[in-house]
Amino acid sequence: MDAGSVMSYGQGKARRAARSRAVAGAARAGFAARGLIYVLVGVIALEIAFDRGGGGRQADRGGALGELADSPFGSVTLWIVGTALAGMALWRLSEAAVGGPGPDGAKPSRRAMAAARCAFYVFVSFSVLSYAAGDRGSGSGSSDRQTDDVTATALSWPAGRWIVGAAGTAVVIAGLWMSVRAARKTFRRRLRTEDMSRRARRCTDLLGVAGGTARGVVFASAGVFALVAAVRRQPGEAKGMDDTLRAFRDLPAGPWVLALVALGLAGFGAFSWCHARWRRL
């Protein structure tokens, strides 16, 4: 190999390293933005637990964006959050294209999951950025109304009940999967635990278990409501995140149950910040 080839190889390697650092930085920004949204959702849900009206606010992504919009420098914050979530989409796209870290990172199933997550974050980022640009009907829309509209449309199709039922079943399974993985602390494999202090590991474990379990419970509960909507052919039985959380309040000792779930969701937000700091990328 001549000197020119060696120089070209070195420059190419440097460019690849720079791109890798840029994608990693984008991913960490995305985790930080996701964490902020979940913390705000948890805070709103905690207030709803002991105030039936909840001040008219929604305990979902739309409600969280509304809180950000009403804060000092709200427009700037929304642009930052939307851009950071686009960074998360970029990172997932890179995983879909070339595989993620770890021995199983290049498996087709992992890359397909990364592609699906990329599509999700593209949608979320676009909705947040549209909201920041002044489209108040985007991003901040009620998850309950959106779920009702989507379910009603699906139920109007041939075999619509089976489609909604299958979707509900998938969401229930996904929620249970989230909770089980959180309880088993499988998230440790994706974190640089060797760089953490003992206190940081303990705190991260607590947030990961509590937050992941709460998130899984909310997902599974939303899936159950979708199944009920399919069986009864009533789209109004399906619930978005806000109505799902409010349903916990109607249980025996409901306010305390919802408060526990709300704290778990806020904990998941803080756990996302741990990912922003220690995630293997």
Results as ranks from 00 to 15, higher is better:
26 A>F: 04
4 G>I: 04
162 W>M: 05
18 A>I: 01
64 A>Q: 04
7 M>D: 09
153 T>F: 14
183 A>I: 07
29 A>E: 12
6 V>S: 10
244 T>I: 09
142 S>C: 09
64 A>R: 09
152 A>V: 08
14 A>D: 02
199 R>T: 14
220 A>N: 05
9 Y>S: 04
16 R>S: 11
87 G>K: 14
151 T>A: 12
66 G>N: 07
64 A>K: 06
252 P>S: 11
47 E>G: 04
160 G>E: 00
144 D>T: 05
163 I>V: 15
243 D>V: 02
271 F>T: 01
91 W>Q: 09
169 T>N: 07
258 L>W: 10
179 S>W: 03
175 G>V: 13
223 G>I: 14
205 D>P: 01
116 A>M: 10
151 T>P: 02
27 A>D: 08
120 F>S: 05
66 G>T: 01
190 R>E: 11
126 F>E: 13
44 I>C: 03
184 R>I: 06
90 L>D: 06
247 A>F: 11
27 A>E: 09
5 S>K: 15
278 W>A: 00
76 V>A: 14
171 V>Q: 08
29 A>K: 14
194 E>N: 07
103 P>M: 09
35 G>F: 13
203 C>T: 15
216 G>P: 07
28 R>A: 00
239 K>I: 00
18 A>N: 03
4 G>F: 14
118 C>N: 07
209 V>G: 06
222 A>V: 04
71 S>D: 10
177 W>A: 01
6 V>C: 04
148 D>P: 03
260 L>M: 06
140 S>K: 14
16 R>I: 07
69 A>D: 02
178 M>R: 10
14 A>V: 02
78 L>E: 05
228 V>A: 07
35 G>L: 04
55 G>P: 14
95 E>Q: 14
207 L>T: 02
31 F>R: 01
201 R>K: 10
133 A>R: 11
127 S>R: 11
224 V>N: 06
257 V>N: 02
214 A>D: 01
144 D>C: 03
70 D>V: 01
228 V>S: 06
86 A>K: 14
98 V>F: 00
258 L>N: 13
107 K>G: 12
94 S>Y: 10
274 C>M: 09
140 S>D: 01
230 A>T: 00
167 A>I: 08
158 P>R: 06
73 F>L: 08
145 R>Y: 10
87 G>H: 10
61 R>Y: 09
231 V>M: 12
9 Y>F: 14
15 R>Y: 11
129 L>W: 03
52 R>H: 12
242 D>F: 11
